[in-house]
Structure formats: C-alpha cells, structure tokens
C-alpha cells in the first residue's frame, strides 16, 4: 500500500476530530473581547434608591460578580437560587438590572430574595451594550482591581459555580490588590 492511499483516511480523521470538538461547544456563546480589560465605565441609578449612583468605584477592592438580569428573563429565575447561595458564602454580587421595569424588579427581589450588594438599573440597555451583553443572564467575574477575568453566558449552574466561579474567586482573593 502506498502512503498516499492513507491520505483520505487522515483527512477523514482530522474532520471527525474537528466536528467532534465543534459538537461540544455551544454556538450561542460568543467569546467576549472584554476579558482581561477593566470593566467598562458606567454610572447608573441604584434600583433600590434612584437618588444613589452605582459606578465602577463599587467594583474594586475585592473580587466581585457582576450579574446581568431582568425579571423578563426566564434563565434569571432559574439561576437565582445559585446567586443567593453565592451571597451566603460571602461573595460580593453587584446586579445590573437590564432593560427592565423597576417596580417589577424590586418586587422580584422581595419575592425571591436579594443576593445583590448593589443593583444598578440600566433602563435603556446602553450600559449592557458597553459590557457586550447580548442575552441575560450573563455573569462577569471581576478581580480586585475591577478587571474582567471571566464571563459566563446563560444561567449559572452548580457545575459552573463549583468548577469555575468559586475556584477563580479564591484565586483572585489571593492576588495582590
């Protein structure tokens, strides 16, 4: 057998490998160019008290989760228990209530529990665009300096929290400020 007879087999195996890997990735997840960059500047009214402004200053000092949510988003309801659990562990979570009705949002936090240290209220969704948000829920992990280190698109799952988010938060907590 000549070596060139093996070429189609090698090509086939390469294609199988490429397609196999493609099956494993979620095509709805778009990689964010913001990873490794400081969180985009923003200044928004607080959901709880519109007279109070929430800005980037709230995102430094300790590792922080920024969770983009809305009462209209089914996935947000699904992950809410996970956020409450993270808050109980002492994780600082800042919410970004995205393109939502403020009254409904406040009622939601009363009904389901409030895991957020602060909630910024983005009525028009323009801050969401600055953060590259394309579908709630989305969760960003920020380090002590307010640099985005990880982004999760879709509801947080127990696997994602235990396998990625908590270990990363631990690592970030040990980083020099």
């Amino acid at each position: 057998m000549r070596w060139s007879n093996a070429v189609p087999l090698v090509v086939l195996l390469a294609l199988v490998l490429a397609f196999w890997r493609g099956l494993g990735r979620d095509p709805t997840v778009v990689p964010s160019p913001l990873i490794g960059r400081p969180a985009p500047q923003f200044s928004l009214p607080s959901l709880r008290d519109p007279a109070v402004l929430v800005t980037n200053a709230e995102l430094v000092g300790q590792p922080t989760l920024v969770n983009v949510w809305g009462t209209w988003c089914v996935g947000c309801r699904a992950e809410h228990g996970m956020l409450l659990d993270l808050a109980r562990r002492g994780v600082r979570i800042v919410g970004l209530d995205w393109k939502d009705d403020a009254l409904a949002a406040r009622a939601w936090l009363v009904e389901l529990g409030d895991p957020y240290q602060l909630v910024a209220y983005d009525a028009t969704g323009s801050v969401g665009i600055d953060w590259g948000v394309y579908g709630a829920p989305e969760t960003f992990v920020l380090d002590k300096r307010g640099v985005i280190r990880h982004k999760h698109v879709g509801p947080l799952t127990a696997e994602e929290v235990a396998g990625t988010v908590l270990p990363l938060l631990d690592r970030l907590a040990r980083e020099a400020p």
């Binding site: 209209w72 996935g75 939502d100």
Partner: peptide, 11 residues
C-alpha cells in the same frame, strides 16, 4: 427556534 424572551423596554 429559540424561545425568545423579550424585555418590556422597547427601544
């Protein structure tokens, strides 16, 4: 076809 969730805010 993904079930589309809509925000009440219509820009």
């Amino acid at each position: 076809a993904a079930a589309e969730e809509r925000s009440p805010i219509d820009n």
